[in-house]
Design a protein around this nucleic acid. Structure first.
Lengths: 156, 156
DNA sequence: AAGACCCATCCGCTCAAGCGGACGGTTGCT
DNA sequence: AGCAACCGTCCGCTTGAGCGGATGGGTCTT
């Protein structure tokens, strides 16, 4: 199975899967693997922050999922993962889309052009768009990643 | 609490600052800047998730700080930043560098121009820079935020 | 067979996350 | 002057995150 599709269907219970996965990885031997009571006790000892066995089970079984920043930080600290580990979901794709733009804007002159284009009239922007597209053709560059995309928002 | 051994001390206390910073970046013009009531309404419209004006103010003023994953995702989605922005300082500063551009790039056409300008030769970029600057003068727009800045990066 | 543990699961409570509605102050329009 | 709209701020309420303390069932010793 491809791991890209499952993040859509089980987007609700991902947190539970991640906690169980981290517990299994931290205690590979099922014989030595502690239950939620002992695990919560160890989290309390190691991090100094509160953590109850009941709530830990509720999280691991998917009954509760909307955790606060404090709880998230506690789990991340104990399992030795960055806090972002627990919240990478469908938003990741949107970040990727932004990264594409960030790559283009690494050039200082491209940045300047973008900044100075802000606020210009629609007609002027269209004219500039024609120019830059034509310049691309002249310099024998392939079409930009933008040409294929169609985003129907941005009221203005 | 225990203010002794926290590694992300800044990330804890300054959620309020981050929210205010993001609001100021998204609405650079103080005259057009909405209050918490209108801002919350826009968050609701744009994300489809609930968000009250009172709670938004409580967050921005530092009265509440331990937000849940849902609220965090709502804010991140609206402000166009990765959710880690509110957790990690490193991510915060890295994203902040881009936010100024994101403000300008809300316009779809400006985005397209920036994407297509990538890879063009230096001479062509200079020519485009002249054109867009001239267009600004013709349309009676003030100088962009970029014109005053001198950044000594991008050696090549 | 009974005591001592540990397990997953459940019930019910506390308290803060989150919200609705109001208050007084300021700006601007008529 | 009045009204309308918006602002930041406060109060009190509901809801759910998070927890303490049962419960019953399994697996060891003795």
């Amino acid at each position: 199975m491809d791991p890209e599709q499952r993040k859509h269907e089980v987007a609700d219970g991902v947190l539970a899967e991640k906690i169980n996965h981290l517990r299994d990885r931290l205690y590979p031997d099922p014989a030595d693997r502690p239950g939620y009571a002992k695990l919560a006790a160890r989290i309390r000892e190691q991090t100094g922050k509160p953590m109850s066995a009941t709530y830990l089970w509720e999280l691991a079984s998917g009954r509760k999922r909307n955790i606060t920043q404090d709880t998230l930080a506690t789990l991340a600290e104990f399992f030795g993962v960055p806090p972002e580990y627990f919240l990478d979901d469908v938003v990741t794709s949107r970040v990727d889309a932004q990264l594409e733009l960030v790559t283009a804007l690494r050039n200082q002159k491209v940045r300047s052009i973008a900044l100075r284009a802000e606020g210009l009239s629609d007609d002027t922007l269209d004219a500039l768009l024609v120019m830059v597209t034509e310049a691309r053709r002249i310099e024998r560059l392939g079409p930009s990643a933008d040409t294929a995309r169609r985003e129907p928002d941005e009221s203005g």
